[in-house]
Structures are given as C-alpha cells and as structure tokens.
Amino acid sequence: MIQKKICLLGAYAVGKTSLVLRFVRSVFSESYSATVGVRIYKKEIGLAPWGIKLIVWDLAGENELVRLRTSYLRGCSGYILVVDGTRPATLEKAIDLQRRAFQTLGPVPFVLVVNKNDRRDQWSIEAFALDDLRESGWTCLRTSAKTGEGVELAFQILAEKLIDAHRAATAS
C-alpha cells in the first residue's frame, strides 16, 4: 500500500479539523478550538494493493496573526482547500492559498470543498462563484463535517487523483 502526505489548507475556523476528524474518526464536535501549528492524522482508503494510506497534515488556519508556514507543505502530494460557505472572504483566502501552494509544490492534485453545507440558509457564497474555478479545472464539492455529507467523497476523489498521479509517475 503506498502512502502519501496531504495537507488541509484554509482560513481560520472554516472546519479543517472538523473535516479530518469526521473523515478519520466519524465524529463531530460543535465546540471550536483553534489548531496550534499542525496536527497529524492517518487513514487508509480502499483495499491493498489498490488502496492508499493518507497522512493528513491539518495545518493551523490563517488569520491576521498566523501566516501559513510553507515549509509544512514540503513533500506534500496533494491538498484540500477548505472554504466556509457562510464567509465569502474564506473563498478568496483559499484562492490565495492555492497560488502559494502552487509556487511551493507545483501542479499537484487538489480539491476545493465548501464546508458547512448543513447551514445552507446562512450561505453567502453563490453557486456561480465557483463556476469560474470549475472552468479552469478545479474540482469543487460541498461538504458538511457536521452531517458527514461529501466528506468521505472529497477525500476519496483526492485519493483517486493521487493514485492516478502516482501511476503516471511510475509509468514514465
């Protein structure tokens, strides 16, 4: 079974830690506690020998005081950009983070998720806001760490992309 390092990137309090806890342990907590630095989780997807072991680096979200440490991105094979559907500024932040991740890592696979789909009534990001991104080839999904909706799928899609990239690299 191959293993790959992936990162979760996004503004503060968009639900990065909630997503990874939902994915790895199937739990959700309403309380918010900011991640300091980085926490690391692992989860295996699928059966050997086709499966993949994901080592997930849950990085501290960016705010006015904390900047992303790009050294944490080193050796990362893919990443998930997390946006809070109720805060449009977090989408801009995700686009900015993608640009910086691209500078560090080059064209590695990534997925953008718009989280907090359980609070659709409070959403202020419209569907068309993502259309431009989709047209330029981004994969965008809606997720809810609270209900679990789309979470497994988002990680699974990224895992498939990583396996494809791995096959392409070993074939060449």
């Binding site: 293993q3 390092k5 630095g37 690391i40 989780y41 680096w57 050294s71 944490y72 080193r74």
Partner: peptide
C-alpha cells in the same frame, strides 16, 4: 505510539524549529 503519526509530528517540529 503510532510511528506514522510520530514521523509526521517530528518532521513538523523540525520544520517549525528551522523556520
């Protein structure tokens, strides 16, 4: 403890110190 997690954390701590 789980060696996969320790590896990751040790690497992160080293990155942090370097930065």
């Amino acid at each position: 403890k789980d060696p996969d997690i320790i590896s990751g954390m040790l690497t992160a701590v080293q990155d942090f110190v370097r930065d």
